[in-house]
Amino acid sequence: MNALAHSSAASSGRPPDLARGEVVFHVRNLSKTYGTGEAAVHALAGVDLDFRQGELVVLLGPSGSGKSTLLNLLGGLDTPSAGTLLYRGWDLGAADEAGLTQYRREDVGFVFQAYNLIPSLTARENVGLIGELASDPLPAEEALRLVGLGARLDHFPAQLSGGEQQRVAIARAIAKRPRVLLCDEPTGALDVRTGIVVLEAIESINRELGTLAAIITHNAVMAAMADRVFSLSDGRVVNVQTNAQRAPVSTLAW
C-alpha cells in the first residue's frame, strides 16, 4: 500500500487534504422523503452526524433504516429534502447536477453490493474507465494489484468470482484517489472468506491514504473494525458507538 500512499501524495491540483480528524461531512437535521401525501416515505428523518477525515465508519441498521439513503446523499447521488449537508464546507444539498457530477468525478469512490461492473469491459478496462475522468488516476493495473487482482487483469466480469468482482469494483473506486470511499453492503453477496479479503482492501486504503471510508452493513460483526459505528433505525441515528481500538479485519468472523 506504500505505493498508493506515495502516488496519492504526489497528486496535485487539488486543495490540500484536511488534517486527520477534521470534519469532512457536516450533517444536520438531514431528511429525505420519497413521494408525497399519504404515500410519502420518510427514508431519513432528521439525522445529525459528522464524518471526519481518516476515520472508518460503519453504518449499521436493518433494511429500510435509511443507511443507503444517507450514503446516496453523501455521495451526491441524490439530493436531500431538508436539512444541511456540507462537504468540506460546501453545501452539497444546494449543488446542481453539474456540481454533483463534478463532485462524484473528483472526490467520491463508490463500492456497491451488486458490484455494478460493465459486463462488456474487462477488469482492467472497468478500472481504466475512471482514468478517463479523474485528473490524476492510478494506473488500472496498479489499482488492481492493490486489491490482489494483478493476475486477472484481462478477465471479463462473468469470468470472475463474486469476491473478485467486488475487488474490481473497489479498485475502480480507489483508482481516482478519492477523498471519500462509500461502500454499500460491499460484502453482502460474498461468503465470509471473500468478504474478509474485500474488507481488508477497504481498511488498508483507509489506513494508508487517510481516506474517509463509510461502510454500510447490517452485519453487526463488522462494527468492530470501525473507528465509529452509527446505528440507524427508521431514518434516524439511534446510537453512535466509538471504538477505542479498531479490530483487525482478519479477526472478524460471522
Partner: peptide
C-alpha cells in the same frame, strides 16, 4: 447509474 456515480456527466 454506476457511470453517473463514478462521475460521468
Amino acid at each position: 447509474a454506476m457511470l453517473k456515480a463514478c462521475g460521468f456527466g
